[in-house]
Simulated scan of single mutants.
Amino acid sequence: MTGPVPAVVFTHLLRMTDHRATFEHAKLTQPRREHGYCVDDMARVLIVATREPGSGGPVNGLAGKALGFLNDAQSYDGGCRNRMDSAGRWQDQPGTDDHWGRMVWALGTAAAHSDVSLVRRLATVQFERAAQTRSPHPRAMAFAAIGAAELLDVTPGHPAARALLTDYARSIPAAPQDPEWRWPEPRLRYANGALVEAMIATGVALDDPALLDRGLDLLEWLLDLETVDGHLSPTPVAGRGPGDRRPAFDQQPIEVASLADACARAATVDPRPAWPEGLRAAAAWFEGDNDLGMPMWDPSTGGGFDGLHGDRVNLNQGAESTLAALSTMQQARRFSPVPQ
């Protein structure tokens, strides 16, 4: 992408949202109400809504709705439920899987970036409740660490945020010794960008130069691996290992958004041009600079398409894909010209 990044438009996200929350799935542009709502998506709603500069009433309303949903999902010991049906009934018990980590990420982001003082205060209270516990899952802890780093950036010395980051740093596995496969897992899985973003954010927050450098180096390796013929070709749903053929499908927008978030984080602490270039490549993936040469979102409404298959685009516009597109454009606009 060489020109300005398209504007962030919330039309479709608002269409997907009722009085309670944002529906998880869509049939083309229409919400599939029968599938209900989830914390994973409402955490993403809170992140996107609170980091949008100068957001107006409808976007602030999304943030308030997300904050209320996450509060209702939480238990007193820090865990949270994930799924609610369309009638407002929770369908599971509190836990600390990925949805918990995304919730902590969202609460830290809202506490740091919301334009509304009440949202900042309530998000901080909820963050402190959630940060009482820990997750055994590496990605959940990485998501939570990103939120803790956001909060610590605006509230230096915040004890719950610092304790969470310290525990996360201790949990990071040692770097593998294989120079050809530097990833800390045998295969790339999902939300890979979040693992390196968490390393970068934690390295900065805890003043750990070695961890920061490891995160930056690993992000550079990941971007190189995920780039084919000058465009992004992200890890498919089945993962990616050494020697796997590329391109591979199905590709999910959330993987591109994860890379964009990591590049945006890196760009704030390292002046190399690779990070703004990575952001532009992520935005360009949605615009059609991908393995099929087909757009992955509708810029007129902000709706994101649900997946890139080997022969077509999945034109359903669910919440996760829509939020991935909006998040990517937000991040890319921070380091790119704004259209006049």
Rank of each mutant, 00 (worst) to 15 (best):
A87Q: 15
L323M: 09
G68L: 01
P159C: 00
M84E: 07
A161W: 04
G157V: 01
A106H: 07
T11L: 07
A49D: 03
M329I: 13
D208M: 07
R170A: 15
G36H: 01
A163H: 00
D224R: 14
D224V: 14
L323Y: 11
T2W: 08
T2A: 15
P295H: 00
R182Q: 14
R334Y: 05
D98M: 10
S336M: 06
R139M: 05
A260K: 07
I172C: 13
D153T: 14
N60Q: 14
S171V: 01
T328A: 13
S300K: 10
A175H: 08
D40I: 05
R187L: 09
V269S: 11
P295T: 06
A282N: 04
M199W: 13
D224C: 14
E197T: 06
L232Q: 03
G101A: 13
P276G: 03
V269G: 03
V313G: 00
A112W: 02
R214V: 02
I146N: 04
S300G: 10
G293E: 00
G303Q: 02
R32N: 12
L326H: 00
A163Q: 02
A26M: 02
E320W: 08
G95H: 07
M294T: 10
H99L: 09
Q251V: 10
T301D: 11
P242N: 01
D92R: 09
